[in-house]
Nucleic acid binder design. Structure first.
Length: 428
RNA sequence: GGUGGGGUGGCUGAGUGGUCGAAAGCGGCGGUCUUGAAAACCGUUGAGUGUAACAGCUCCCAGGGUUCGAAUCCCUGCCCCACCGCCA
């Protein structure tokens, strides 16, 4: 959520900044609602004040032994007025909140202009895509041929079990998948100073509102159908960031708070029919090692640079060529002020494809969540800044390894850093 | 699933329907003392909204209700704790 004060005081400036991401702010509706809200609120509070003072008086008058009849009559009159005003205020506040809840975050100054992913700007590349002396296969074909009796990567049997966009992994591929999780967790914990955390994979509406998935993106989520209205998490970002919802940290020594969480992620992929239907790129269920930071406002810009570096480290250790892009205004996510994507090289597609996304949300999520800390300078509560990033998406890393490390006979060489985790040097 | 007890400020924890935004303690902040620190002592300290600053308003899990007046009474929901049963 944006700062309502900022929105009120300089709506034109906000609208201009939101324009960068293709969002049109309806200033007129907003400001007229806002004016209405103010008028009614002033009126309501005046009536409340009158009621309160008279009610207090009744106690005193009664104690003095005098008659309270006239006062009662006055209060009664106030109450009926108040009931009307209250109702009005409630309804307008609801309208206003509904409007505010779907306004996206303001992009950072250095976010490039642009309409969609084609306008994202590459900021660096690492590694050299390998030249193959044979015809490369994609991970689907590779996975089908690996394994003794059954495919090591099996989409057909998964669709029998569940449906499309799911996978079954066996043997060496399943083990590689697990090894990747271990490797990533170990690096972030031991080398990057993260604390490991394990959280629920189902969350309530409030949590999803806090990080910004609700109310706008419900169709992307899987929802349970029991009366509790729980949702499967689309990313660990939701439960982990919401750890500090409605919290006020007293001790700023806890900051920055850096948490790493391995979890499955569930996405309905409602809007992506027909996109990446082959293979593991876009699944309804995948796993991810997620990095979440809570920092003081003045530290968030630097924290994003560190976060993206942590994610890149993993690819470097795995020897996977990648490039890093900064998302343009039109491609940036709803809650984010600034996002870097890391894209890994896929030989079968001759393209770089997203494998990580690291964002600075500034106080946008914190305001929705009321996640605060006490600033020792002022002694006052202030909103935290939140950040998160994938470090990395496991399924996509797995397929990148399969494709980049494939050998002519269809086997997969195991990257050196993974060998201690795997106990083997190749998967066949 | 059964029975009982609870949800109060950063934390622990009191709170006869009016003088309660709320005792006390801890923690925090400021000070006295000290070479410095600790201890001790004194003072101060809820969140939000609003204002130039006051004032005002809202908030004692959430949502309804009773009442002139609700942290306090009633209803519903959620959550927590204890014991019993069942169980990975």
């Amino acid at each position: 959520m944006l700062d309502p004060k900022l929105l009120r005081s300089s709506p034109e400036a906000v609208a201009k900044m939101l324009k960068k991401r293709g969002f049109t702010l309806d200033i007129e509706t907003l400001m007229s609602l806002e004016q209405e809200r103010k008028d009614i609120q002033v009126k309501t509070e005046y009536l409340q004040q009158q009621r309160n003072s008279r009610s207090k008086n009744i106690g005193k008058v009664k104690a003095a032994g005098d008659g309270i009849e006239p006062l009662l009559k006055e209060v009664d009159n106030l109450k009926s007025q108040l009931a009307v005003a209250d109702e009005e205020l409630k309804s307008i506040q609801e309208k206003l909140n509904t409007l505010l809840a779907v306004i996206p975050n303001i992009p950072a100054d250095d976010v490039p202009e642009g309409k969609d992913e084609d306008d994202n700007v590459e900021i660096r590349r690492w590694g050299q895509p390998r030249t193959f002396t044979f015809t490369v296969k994609d991970h689907v074909d590779l996975g089908m041929d690996l394994g003794d009796h059954y495919a090591a990567l099996d989409f057909d049997v998964a669709s029998k079990l569940t449906g499309s966009r799911f996978a079954v992994m066996r043997g060496g591929i399943a083990r590689l998948h697990r090894a990747l999780i271990q490797l990533m967790l170990d690096i972030h914990i031991d080398e990057h100073g993260y604390q490991e955390i394990n959280v629920p994979y189902m969350v309530n509406k409030d949590s999803l509102f806090g990080t910004g998935q609700l109310p706008k993106f419900e169709e992307d989520l899987f929802k349970t159908n029991d009366e509790r209205e729980l949702y499967l998490i689309p990313t660990a970002e939701v439960p982990v960031t919401n750890l500090l919802r409605n919290e006020l940290l007293q001790d700023d020594q806890q900051l920055p708070l850096k948490l790493v969480c391995h979890s499955p992620c569930f996405r309905s992929e409602a809007g992506s029919h027909g996109r990446d239907t082959r293979g593991m790129i876009r699944q309804h269920q995948f796993e991810k090692v997620e990095l979440v930071n809570f920092v003081k406002p003045e530290d968030s810009e630097q924290a994003l640079e560190e976060l993206i570096a942590c994610a890149e480290t993993i690819l470097q250790k795995l020897g996977l060529p990648y490039r890093t892009v900064i998302l343009c205004g039109g491609d940036i996510g709803f809650s984010s002020a600034k996002t870097y994507d890391i894209e890994v090289w896929l030989p079968s597609q001759q393209k770089y494809r997203e494998i990580s996304s690291c964002s600075n949300f500034r106080d946008f999520q914190a305001r929705r969540m009321k996640a605060r800390y006490r600033n020792p300078e002022t002694g006052k509560p202030e909103l935290l800044h939140t950040l998160n990033g994938s470090g990395l998406a496991i399924g996509r890393t797995l397929l990148a390894i399969m494709e980049n490390y494939q050998q002519e006979d269809g086997s997969i060489a195991v990257p050196e850093v993974l060998q201690p985790y795997m106990g083997i040097t190749e998967i066949r």
